[in-house]
Design a binder for these strands. Structure first.
Lengths: 144, 144
DNA sequence: CATGTTAAAGAAAATCATTTTCTATAATGC
DNA sequence: GCATTATAGAAAATGATTTTCTTTAACATG
């Protein structure tokens, strides 16, 4: 999903498109990984003049409400990943925290309606991406 | 999973079986729902002489490490549900926070190995249990 | 394009969940 | 029993997140 589309989504919901938001949003989208608010703030600082941490928190809140950010709880830390609005699942690399979207879905929502009404579901896969897998093998080969 | 089994699991890992832990554990297991540490603490207070909130936090930490508690992030709040150690998924009622275990699993772990190595996955279904569904219909029927 | 309205930025303070510290106690092994 | 050591609990510390307040800038309107 490209920036322009998100801008119009924000606009629809009466959120203003400030320069700060555009900067944070761009950084967030381009990172391709899950980040804590503080980490996202750090990334923004590296590439642009700093934006306040409060602003980062507030944008994440807005995006989450709009379904454009998804929180992950890993080891007690809350991370967020940018997220298009089409239903999909996530694969998260436990090493580098990169996130890959998985658009296949077995549409199991209706499968479990004996428990009640299922409004939505999420599925998260955790593991190691190919890149980190390779690195880990290299590291292991250095061991005695 | 019954209490005795969990006791032996704690024991295996060199955790002591204190009276406080037994009380909190029993309350946690019997609740059948996801609870914040503070909520669990409140539940314990109602049924038994109070146990310290710190103790509740520490037990949840231990259970999570042993795979006997699962955290859920809902609206920025972290809830925990008691969890047997067999792999399963969860249905969570967004009204009453009751949790139902779903032991069917499509074993999709291997299905996505083009992204890398999948170590584990979780799937959460969110909706409204039959009980709350019924209540909601009754509430609606009272509206003008 | 100028202007009024109002959401948002940012700094600082406040809040609140969670963790740590420290001492007394009780669970476990011998 | 007795020694060892993990745990309970109270209080303090920590640290992430939220709130407050003032200034600024985005947007709609004429």
């Amino acid at each position: 999903m490209e920036l322009e589309l998100i801008k119009s989504k924000l606009h629809e919901s009466n959120f203003r498109l400030t320069q700060e938001r555009e900067v944070v949003l761009t950084t967030f989208m381009n990172s391709g990984q899950m980040l804590t608010p503080a980490q996202l703030h750090d990334c923004v600082k590296k590439e642009y003049n700093s934006v306040g941490l409060t602003t980062v928190y507030r944008l994440i809140e807005v995006l989450t409400k709009l379904g454009l950010a998804t929180p992950f709880l890993i080891d007690g830390e809350i991370y967020y990943t940018f997220c298009s609005d089409h239903h999909h699942h996530h694969f998260v690399c436990l090493d580098c925290h990169k996130v890959k979207d998985i658009y296949e879905c077995l549409e199991m929502t209706h499968k479990y309606d004996d428990v009640g009404t299922v409004n939505y579901h999420r599925m998260d896969l955790y593991g190691h991406c190919k890149n980190c897998e390779r690195k880990n093998i290299n590291v292991k080969s250095l061991e005695p």
